[in-house]
Design a protein around this nucleic acid. Structure first.
Lengths: 346, 346
DNA sequence: AATTAGCACTCGGATAGATCGAGTGCTAAC
DNA sequence: GTTAGCACTCGATCTATCCGAGTGCTAATT
């Protein structure tokens, strides 16, 4: 049991009641009244007493009422206190752990697939929305570059990074170019650009490569233009999102307009920035307005990271209503991100 | 003007009224009454006359009432007749054509991007949902295969098809294998598998390659297993979907449960099958229950195809409510698919 | 014979009370 | 410090009523 030292302002009983109330509200989605609390077996005082305590908790800003004579609902401050001090991690049942492991039973030949499946598992088991951010292109380095000719004028330029990520661009080469030239170009690129960070490719191309190219390749300008274009990386990172619709069944989103605006937020790029703005290490929770992004004021965001061979790779996020099953989600996101890291590492 | 010969059952005036009514209902989303039709400048008969005509049209099954004393709404048969005989194609304004062209102004280095943008344009200009099906893997042939080693035990296997599509798989190779071996394997594969249809890769691997491999490669069994796995193609095709949320603002989807089930359908695989079940050539419209797929009984599906250099490549689809702006969508989907084909071809 | 004016009728949607119940705060008794 | 009792509040639900936009049918008009 918790002792009152956590916060001088709150008595043990108040802590206890706050915890009960949040737990209750999280499952019922209805304002919690004193009577319903008093009915519990582990509560040994009367509704009137509870009313007094709740009134105090409200005065301190941990609880709110939806109208003058309604039951209480946790405020954001209440949730914050709850997740900081009252969160008792929940154990998954053996069945659940089994089911999760089961989802990873098959062999994954594409890393993307593994990440996608993780998003799926997480959204399914939490019943909220899961978003996975892959490694940022910023952090990747070039491993290998390759050109496959499709026909006389077109080819596919394939760029593989050290993390195993593959980008491909269709290019149209100048007619004047010869097959040997293409090979030469690719060789030069591989030679000079290996291990260069992806975001520096273009700069390096201009600085160091251009001289060598000029010597060896005819029609130098056109080729450089072509390469210039192909080495532009626009997508900052890969994103997988699963269970976008889960959140809609929550009673707080019965309003069609809310649904539309939330879905738009989930599909926009801003949500990615919001997630990236979370601390890059450990598990973090942002509740309601703590999120800077407009449109998710009624949501909470929980994030943690995953890695490959110890190296930070990306972020796992779960978005649900403020009224979220925090203990369960915290456990799940932690478990799943570990499983993902294991799978990526081996 | 249309003449009555189209269908012996309907007089010119009935055709005219049916067209008016559909046009009106499509924009208003409200049952159309005789009075509101009579008020139009181009209508020269009284509400009573119109009521008689509408009653006849209803008897013939082209119209419906939502309740005993409501105005009329087109039935599915009514829509069907409308799109078959009364659809007058609409011209886009110069502004619109300009805006569409504008969306394609930038150079596309990835074919996928071009298709994605097309989905976006289409959903934006129709205000419905656009779905693009890429070329089926079935129809592709192997152009080139390539292995990039990431470290001692892992590599990325890259598969390029004749259409310029790139698949990549992360593989873990047996420790015993040597660098030269890998090169040898890839050479054998490229040699023997070029131009083989993607879906036959595995079969060919077993039949013709296995002998050659056995001769040249040590640790034959493990290598074969690895390749076996890597050449499994699970995704039948690429899919781009844009504007999933557009459809939700339509008044027929004010019900949250309808929204959820529709979104689930749009995200599922069945919708792809539904689209693939459309005739593979020309423009086609399926109205409401004409769609076999459960969950889109209240929607209409319009599809056409796009191509690259004359060769059929994929399908463009728009999903909206039955009460759809058919003339506009038909024009748009037609225009856009042509622009896409042009862009792919050049 | 076709059209239209007139009229009774239907039904959904909006509005206004009435009622109910779950909740509160406060006071006084325990 | 706790609790029983009570007056009070407010959302939710139900009912009754009214209104308007629509219909079908009949009889008069063109």
């Amino acid at each position: 049991m918790l002792t009152g030292v956590i916060n001088k302002m709150l008595t043990d009983r108040q802590l206890f009641l706050l915890q009960l109330l949040v737990n209750d509200y999280v499952v019922s989605a209805e304002p919690v009244g004193s009577r319903s609390i008093a009915k519990r077996d582990d509560v040994h005082f009367s509704p009137a007493t509870i009313r007094n305590e709740l009134a105090d908790l409200e005065e301190m800003g941990f609880l709110e009422k939806t109208h003058l004579s309604s039951g209480r609902v946790p405020s954001e401050k209440g949730y914050r206190f709850y997740v900081d001090h009252l969160l008792s991690p929940v154990l998954l049942t053996e069945d659940e752990v089994g089911n999760i492991r089961h989802a990873y039973r098959k062999k994954f030949s594409e890393k993307e697939e593994l990440i996608r499946v993780t998003a799926q598992v997480l959204s399914e088991f939490t019943n909220y929305t899961a978003i996975m951010l892959g490694p940022e292109l910023m952090d990747m380095r070039l491993k290998h570059i390759q050109m496959v000719k499709l026909n006389q004028t077109q080819g596919v330029l394939i760029i593989v990074t050290d993390t195993g990520h593959v980008e491909n661009k269709t290019v149209t080469f100048p007619k004047s170019i010869r097959a040997e030239d293409i090979e030469k170009i690719i060789n030069i690129l591989n030679d000079k650009l290996e291990n260069v960070p992806i975001y520096r490719l273009q700069a390096r191309l201009n600085k160091e490569i251009s001289n060598v190219m000029r010597l060896h390749i005819r029609d130098y300008n056109r080729v450089m233009n072509m390469l210039q274009e192909s080495l532009t990386m626009d997508d900052p990172e890969q994103i997988f999102c699963s269970g976008k619709n889960n959140i809609l069944v929550q009673p707080e989103f019965q309003d069609v307009n809310k649904i539309i605006s939330l879905l738009n937020v989930l599909e926009g790029k801003e949500i990615v920035h919001e997630i990236m703005s979370m601390p890059a290490t450990g598990l973090h929770i942002r509740i309601g307005r703590e999120n800077k992004l407009n449109g998710i004021e009624d949501c909470s965001l929980i994030t943690t990271t995953y890695s490959m061979g110890g190296e930070h790779l990306g972020t796992v996020a779960v978005i649900g209503p403020k009224r979220m099953a925090y203990p369960r989600v915290v456990t799940l996101i932690d478990t799943v991100s570990k499983i993902l890291s294991e799978n990526l590492t081996k």
